[in-house]
Amino acid sequence: MQEEYVAFKQRVATSDGPTWTVLGADYRVVQPIERYLEHLRSTDHSPNTVESYAKGLELWWTFLDARGQSWDRVGVADVGTFLGQLRCGAVGVSVVPSIGAIAPAESTIAVRVRAVMGFYRYHAEAGVDVAGQLYETVRSRPGSYLPFLEHIARRDGRRRSRIRVRTRSRGIPVLRPEQAAALRQAEARWDPASGTWIGELRYRLLWALLEETGLRLGEALRLQHRDWKTGTGDTALIEVSDRPAHPHGLRAKSGYRRIHVGAELDRLYGEWVWALCEAGADVEVEDWDRFYVFCNLHRGPRFGAMRPESVYRHLATMKRRVPDLPESMTPHWFRHTHATALLLAGTPMHVVSRRLGHADVQTTINTYAHVTEDAELRTCADWQAITQAWGGAR
């Protein structure tokens, strides 16, 4: 079945990097959507978020056009119909999908619907009457459960979307210590006989960095040598900068923060700097401080900034070389592994939140609360020991 859209998500090159908009059937920018996407850009949402929301609104505009319906004349039932079409992959298509067709994941559907509801919430604030009907005001009842920081919510109540897609949590994927060690060892190993590293030292450093710091891949690839403050009698640290310019549009999602690192990782960085100099980077690169730590060596512009796509392709190759690596593993697993390890070691939640760069500790709680909860529940497993200690205390 071929889907025929009458709205199109369009990539746009700007001086601040690529962004996205939506064109209508007449190939003109859809102004109500563009106003909302510009709001996302101006409030510092990532280009990936803008792209994802543009895709959701492309589907929504196609849905409206197929029904001959104006965007500001919709209700809850219309969004519900759109949700149903998303689930069977038939947005704007008159043909019934074939039996056995693969339905989109609920998480993908949830993102599409969130884009539409965010679009209408924005226009509700701008005075579009119908948009307000898609939200309801929720007031806390005496004795009811109050979410974290509920006391700072508006006294008139909170606005909540009438359409919500509930997704089942599948847990947070993590790597076992031996899996991460096997990957690093497969990348590069020290050869005492020759006194050199054999293999891809660049990737050994990258995986070690992601595991020890919890950085996002984009944040790691943005690092310049001036951001790595190597230890000289003090603990080494890395500065995650919020500078806007990057050749491939990567950005620091969480803004500026400092992350302290151990001596072993700092030494590995020093070894990589030495390897770069041996490859001639100190001669070819004009400004070392603004030179990217992770750069091209074999493909692309020599010593140019690496692309995330290159890392994903390389990891796919390593999954075939290291049998114990999960097939679905991505670089983001290191971030989850880092947070999980810190929490199981007893690190306070707010400290983990700051290290990960979450804007709100509630984000960390929502994502990783099960880690500490499971650990606490496991302490109840030895019931005999608990009752003996209880009896001895009486």
Rank of each mutant, 00 (worst) to 15 (best):
M1G: 04
F8P: 00
K9N: 05
S15N: 02
V22P: 08
D26R: 15
L37T: 12
H39S: 11
E51D: 02
T62R: 05
A66M: 00
Q69C: 04
S70V: 01
S70M: 11
D72C: 05
R73M: 10
R73A: 08
D78A: 14
Q85R: 14
R87Y: 03
R87P: 00
A90R: 15
V91Q: 12
I102V: 08
A103F: 00
S107P: 01
R112W: 01
R114V: 03
G118M: 12
R121G: 15
R121Y: 09
A131C: 15
Q133A: 12
R160A: 14
I163R: 01
R166M: 00
R168I: 11
R176V: 04
R189M: 13
R189S: 09
P192N: 00
T196V: 07
T196G: 00
T213E: 05
E219R: 01
A220G: 02
H225T: 01
R226T: 02
D227Q: 06
G233R: 06
T235N: 06
T235R: 12
V240D: 08
A245I: 03
G249I: 08
S254N: 15
H260N: 04
H260M: 10
L268R: 11
L268Y: 09
Y269M: 14
E278F: 05
G280P: 02
Y292A: 11
Y292C: 07
V293K: 04
R299P: 00
G304N: 03
R307Q: 08
Y312R: 10
A316Y: 06
R321I: 03
P323R: 10
P323E: 10
E327Y: 01
E327N: 00
P331I: 08
W333C: 06
A339T: 05
T340L: 01
A345Y: 00
R355I: 09
G357T: 03
V361W: 13
E376N: 09
L377V: 03
W383M: 05
